[in-house]
Nucleic acid binder design. Structure first.
Lengths: 150, 150
DNA sequence: CTATTCTCTAGTAAATCGCTAGGGAAATAG
DNA sequence: CTATTTCCCTAGCGATTTACTAGAGAATAG
């Protein structure tokens, strides 16, 4: 399960991906339009800026904008920055590998093997989905195409 | 990220899947062989029993065994019991759906759309992988086939 | 200089995780 | 019947993480 943090970050970036190239958007405006807690969002955007996804400017006419084209930022990158590795377990992670305390033979561990498969499937989607694509799809969606869940 | 609980549960069940049909195994033995904390494992097995995955017997010659054939128990079922829904966000879940507080239009939410794809990919793997398969693969694995991660 | 807006550090309440403790109840052995 | 084994069940608890809020500081525009 991802955290609110990652969700907020993704939502904010998607919104910025739909702005005019080079235009700055205020944190306050993002927070309001997306209904996100303003101060918390600030922290998140700061983090994304430090990781090179956002460019910011202070003072009047300041705000945030993407630091690179929306088709060069993937969901996977963002989630890893905000929530850490994608893999269900550390022992199945490429980017955040850590051995299990209790594992006697990792090469044979059936749990790890399956979790690697899951990780790979997640990564295949998340590392290939860019902000640009997602923004386009999200907006162009036909409401009737997807029935409500239960 | 899954919890230790789910990992412990999966490991224990996989071990039981490799026992003779109908034979009982002690919690203490599972804990020792898999290097898991005994008391915590008890809780987990209890939960799995209540959900119909395990059968147990008390007293001498007691212990736990699978309540159904190993090819009828999937990773997905187990993880849902121990850790809850698979989906990255509640709004993308089939089994544990909950609306996002901040979502204005769910039908258009690009984040949700992508998370549904991720959920579906995870479910496709986890709901089709049985204990029987995983146990067979885990044991038959060729150590040289999978290089160490970093 | 002043208003604006991001920047940064702290703090914090609540929830969750990953256990441990300990006694109770059922089954079996003798 | 008694003792032993083993699961059953409830409680609790320390550490960590989550999801924020507060508030002062620094840059920028006008």
């Amino acid at each position: 399960m991802l955290t609110q943090k990652a969700k907020y970050g993704l939502k904010a970036l998607l919104m910025l991906a739909q702005q005019e190239q080079g235009e700055f958007t205020l944190v306050a405006e993002i927070a309001e339009r997306q209904k996100l807690p303003r101060k918390y969002l600030e922290l998140i955007l700061l983090e994304l800026r430090k990781q090179g996804f956002l460019h910011s400017q202070r003072g009047k006419h300041g705000g945030f904008r993407l630091a690179k084209p929306a088709d060069q930022i993937t969901f996977g990158q963002i989630i890893r920055v905000l929530d850490g590795p994608l893999a269900p377990f550390p022992c199945a992670s490429l980017t955040g590998y850590r051995k299990c305390e209790d594992c006697t033979d990792e090469q044979v561990c059936a749990v790890r093997k399956q979790m690697r498969r899951v990780r790979d499937a997640m990564a295949a989607i998340l590392d290939s989905t860019t902000l640009a694509e997602a923004a386009a799809q999200g907006v162009a969606a036909d409401p009737a195409a997807e029935p409500a869940l239960a």
